[in-house]
Design a protein around this nucleic acid. Sequence first.
DNA 1: TGACATCTACGAAACTCTTCGTATATAATA
DNA 2: TATTATATACGAAGAGTTTCGTAGATGTCA
Lengths: 124, 124
Amino acid sequence: MSDSHPTNAELAILQALWRRGPSTVREVCDEMGRSSGYTTVLKILQIMTQKGLVQRDKSDRAHVYQARHSEEQIQRGLVNDLLTKAFRGSSQRLVMRALSAKPVSAEELAAIRKLIDEMEDKAP
Amino acid sequence: MSDSHPTNAELAILQALWRRGPSTVREVCDEMGRSSGYTTVLKILQIMTQKGLVQRDKSDRAHVYQARHSEEQIQRGLVNDLLTKAFRGSSQRLVMRALSAKPVSAEELAAIRKLIDEMEDKAP
DNA sequence: TGACATCTACGAAACTCTTCGTATATAATA
DNA sequence: TATTATATACGAAGAGTTTCGTAGATGTCA
């Protein structure tokens, strides 16, 4: 099945790829600030290629890797997973936990409120 | 460290315990609808006892297990984890993904709005 | 009491994830 | 060209998770 989610190490690498765009192993390594050794990152990128999480360009000697899914897509998948696993599918509770888990600035609250306004307009 | 999160199987068992309250292995099994075998549930409950996720009462022959943390506590931990791992700590984005991941009813939206109102009142 | 059901305990197998050592190929340089 | 640096590929170790078979203890009932 392809509905599996990236592991922690894979997610950390994806973050680097999303920030940098297409990158070599070394570039990913640097971006990650030496949190894992070079061969470890290489190995995981190879696994991710096999899983279809990244795309590999072997033209140059240093292969260039690229995320195959957007950050938004992956985030949606992770949220959905957490939703069914721990929140009985209730988005409302997840949102409430997210808002109470960490202080949220007034600007952020306003942005969320605006999103809710739009959703209420669309589905009255 | 004790800031580790329950695994999937552990979370499924916790859900059963939260719904039923203190329960025996068999009761947890039934509640879970035969998704895992009896000895599997027993084994994981033993591991969870060792980890401190559940409390065990050995008075009766069939030991009685009880969750040691509330559903809310665990949810908060999971949300925080997801927040740092996949959302760069931005609650706003997590909320937005949660709201767009699954259709949310008007009642739920209203409840969330109310929560935002309260938070804005408290931190102006 | 004897047969049977049910419980805990234990351990091993199968699997995934993460890490790293090492071998090998290729480019750059003195 | 010979040396050095850097790349990929491969495999295996170690940890954690999940599963289940089996052994042994304890309760129930004809």
